[in-house]
Design a protein around this nucleic acid. Sequence first.
DNA 1: TCTTAAACGAGACGGTACGTCCAGTCTTGGA
DNA 2: TCCAAGACTGGACGTACCGTCTCGTTTAAGA
Lengths: 221, 221, 221, 221
Amino acid sequence: MTVTLRRTSRPSPSSDQGEAPQRRLGRPRCEDSRRSILKAAIALLKTNDLPAISADAIAERAGVSKATIYRWWPNKSAIVMEAFLEMVAPHTRFPETDSAMEDLRVHLGRVAEVCQSDIGRMLRTLIADSQANAELAAAMRAHYFSVRRADARKVIERGIASGEFRGDLDTEAAIDCLYGPIVFRLMINPVAPDAEFVNRMIALLRQAFLKRSDRRNVTGR
Amino acid sequence: MTVTLRRTSRPSPSSDQGEAPQRRLGRPRCEDSRRSILKAAIALLKTNDLPAISADAIAERAGVSKATIYRWWPNKSAIVMEAFLEMVAPHTRFPETDSAMEDLRVHLGRVAEVCQSDIGRMLRTLIADSQANAELAAAMRAHYFSVRRADARKVIERGIASGEFRGDLDTEAAIDCLYGPIVFRLMINPVAPDAEFVNRMIALLRQAFLKRSDRRNVTGR
Amino acid sequence: MTVTLRRTSRPSPSSDQGEAPQRRLGRPRCEDSRRSILKAAIALLKTNDLPAISADAIAERAGVSKATIYRWWPNKSAIVMEAFLEMVAPHTRFPETDSAMEDLRVHLGRVAEVCQSDIGRMLRTLIADSQANAELAAAMRAHYFSVRRADARKVIERGIASGEFRGDLDTEAAIDCLYGPIVFRLMINPVAPDAEFVNRMIALLRQAFLKRSDRRNVTGR
Amino acid sequence: MTVTLRRTSRPSPSSDQGEAPQRRLGRPRCEDSRRSILKAAIALLKTNDLPAISADAIAERAGVSKATIYRWWPNKSAIVMEAFLEMVAPHTRFPETDSAMEDLRVHLGRVAEVCQSDIGRMLRTLIADSQANAELAAAMRAHYFSVRRADARKVIERGIASGEFRGDLDTEAAIDCLYGPIVFRLMINPVAPDAEFVNRMIALLRQAFLKRSDRRNVTGR
DNA sequence: TCTTAAACGAGACGGTACGTCCAGTCTTGGA
DNA sequence: TCCAAGACTGGACGTACCGTCTCGTTTAAGA
């Protein structure tokens, strides 16, 4: 999942998916540069806010030429996104216990915790940037949000199949009700949501998810 | 609710809330300028996104000096926010029927519709901008989101009091579950949420809101 | 010699030069304001350089409204000139001994000394400003330089008449040779000319001024 | 004599005066831009005076970005000075006949003529500007006035050595008496000095310069 | 005493230029 | 062909000052 918003796609000249890695002419791309650019972007995001991560700042911190940056990424949002996807996205996996509801709760709790870290800032930044950058928005959806939704969808469908969740549960609406409040608070509140927030939210939603027989007033945690 | 992110707060010298309008020294602020600036900002926002709007452009369109703009607003976000609050925010009021659930559904449906208009773009823009502008974020919370929450809170508490909603309903979590999904889709989806989306969401949530005896599987609309 | 570059000449409505001072309608001009404006201009010139004397700065320091300033003077140069003429110009009179050469030497020495004071800075400022302000230039010539020239001319002609100076002495050229070097150094050198400079200059020029019989090698002083 | 008031001095890292021009890293400065900026500045000066010239105007006329201007010059005075020194200053050289007095006269006549051209306006502008800009003043002295003085000093010392001028002639005072009147009239008079003015001035000064035996009443020309 | 007209303070305003900053592109020489 | 260095265009930024204006207040002369 490395390349995402690359500037130039350099397709193989002969076959569509050449079997051989197929060395290209000239000096090959310097992997060190790529990594140090991504690391510089993240490091800057940790201490500064978005307007501080200028292309010049990234270039200087990465010990890299600005031209190299623009050779491979169309703008700074793309860099941040790539860094985000590569370094951050894998961090939150779903647990797999025999309770789908509990899996969702634990997972979302982790997501909330992650939101409080630098990753939360990156996510906010990327969502914000997406509003004026359709390409970035599409890439974020394709590479991040749709993946999260797919993961959650699997868990919910498992819960339905096992009889834990109501049979007529509207899966997509359920996903929106699970992630929506977290993103909402991430974007609007001064402090990011935490696990406690997730627990209260799940306590509320369980009434809507669970089959009637299962509805006990469990507080979560 | 006129003043929001003004550059200079010039409180009345003697009393906190002088009853007399209490003319101030010097040439009074030109109301025409203020209005035409706000109108220009909104007009520009309809076709452009915020980074594409410059203070110069607003000034030119408003027939106003740039200095006048910076005399009263610290940056363009503040202008847009003030315009938003003054011209746009009041549009969506809650209905007041005898069903709180229905009131919420109808209201959120209107909110969703509004999100599909230029107002949706403005809201996205302001939320996005807030991520790199703490002052704007605070102002948006104080003047917009907290007001919306208060309105919704009143409706929910009415529902609880009337016995329509569960007695132990977590009001704040409920609000997050109502608004969260809408903002979530507004910020992440390519197209804004619509009334249909709200209906599905409400259909899901009603299980969690209503008292046990009331839970019929009503689809809404 | 008070009024010089006044904004509005308010001629007497009836006669051209009314004999009576002829009080006009309305509130009379506030002399305090006028004086404090001039004083403020001078005070600012003493500590700051020219770009620091903005109309706003003068107004603030004088405790006066900016409108009052522009009511009476067209620009800041006019203020400085009026202050200069009123407070400064009379300071250097010619001595009147029986030696015209000595009178010139002593007088120019005083002029040089004056140049080293704040007055020198004012003069430099006014000359500089004149380059882009024809009106100011004309006023300076009419009210200052032509007066100096006339004074010097009188002394030189006295010298010619008394037989001290050569009969064919070119008076205008002589004046230029007397004042020119001083202004030259005032405008170009980092430190203003002093009496020593004047003495050396006069020592040189006396050969050109005096009748042959008088030319002794007097060093001056 | 190219660099004068540059923004950044980038001295050679190794040796103080590297013999090799020693190519530097990165894209080299664009000489075209530099030249067109200087030309634009001069062209604008011909019709406008300095306060009427803006950095934007120079940039536009030169077909150059404003950033490029401020990359290399701290302000517009510096540009004008560099243009002046590079394109204008060398125009007036001393003649070298066997009469130092005549050399001075001819040379100063040419200077006076030059003063009547656009160059005179530039000189006035630069001198005026120097009054509020110490750096510019120092640069003008270092690169222009001290050079003129040195030239004149050589001629005068030649005159002394050859016995044409008095042995005890005060060289520095003499230079001030030669150039002073010209600058004086340039700065104060509405029209610049001309050759006729120089002739009268020289006619006066020759009495002070020449050895007694040489003093005949020559009118000049 | 009341009216009238000008001067005044405060300060908002349009306009213009300032000098800075950043995005993104281009041009060198060297690897 | 890539890279580091860094100059370049273009355009917005927010500030400063100019000179004008619009208020409401003050001041004296004249009715």
